[in-house]
Amino acid sequence: MIRFNSKRLILVILSTLIFINPLFSAESIDPIKVNWSFKELTGKFDRASLQRGFQVYKEVCASCHSMQYLSYRNLGEPGGPEFTEEEVKAIAASVEIEDGPDSQGEMFTRTGKPSDKFKSPYPNVEASTAANGGAYPPDMSVLVKARPGGADYMYSVLMGYEEPPAGMKLDDGVYYNKYMIGQKIKMASPLAEGIVEYSDGTEATMDQMAKDVTTFLAWAAEPELEERHRVGFKVIIYLLLLTILVYLSMKKIWSRVDSEI
């Protein structure tokens, strides 16, 4: 006999959630699965990797991709690359920021401060698009959250440049990338062996750089991740404790009535 029981409904809900999930990924090859340190429930970012990743971003990506929602001070905040205060000041001071108007109504340039936003390579989206052959290099602040595969997808695209399959014709300025949606990308492979010289002496292989910069981008998109995991863990433990207490209280109270709860 079919009954309205809990098992059935939980099954139904679970299957709904499960089959809705994959729907959101568009047609493309599944990205390479990487065992990121920040993936698990108590996951944290790899500090050294974040710092190296910032170096890759600064020396490679930043010439085209903006990161307008980040400030230099973020680089020193807990849960991020955690550069020291002096390092953050030095990083900020390495850029010229346009400020103003001053009391004469003139704009002026000054050296950057930690409170400044990351300086964008182009003044606006139109300039950025025009300078890059009609393809806007997306802002990288939340890029990892804005792609269905997240960090795995990011890493895969960086590693996915290949010779196009025989018979596939590509226009000038278009490249083949097997993980990109549609397999065509307007960005040339940004990484090459040794393109960056890591200040901590790590060997700058393709794989290393792709992992580091992806880690950095994952942090940029979710700077709250470590705090979120930490608070979440405490909240769940607390809720479990209270649930047990309330369950026992409920059993006690309902023991006065000859009915099942």
């Binding site: 607390y238 209270l242 207490l245 209280s249």
Partner: peptide, 13 residues
């Protein structure tokens, strides 16, 4: 004890 504990833990939350 159970009720007091439940109320206390709930209030802390």
């Amino acid at each position: 004890f159970l009720f007091t504990a439940s109320y206390t833990v709930g209030a802390v939350g």
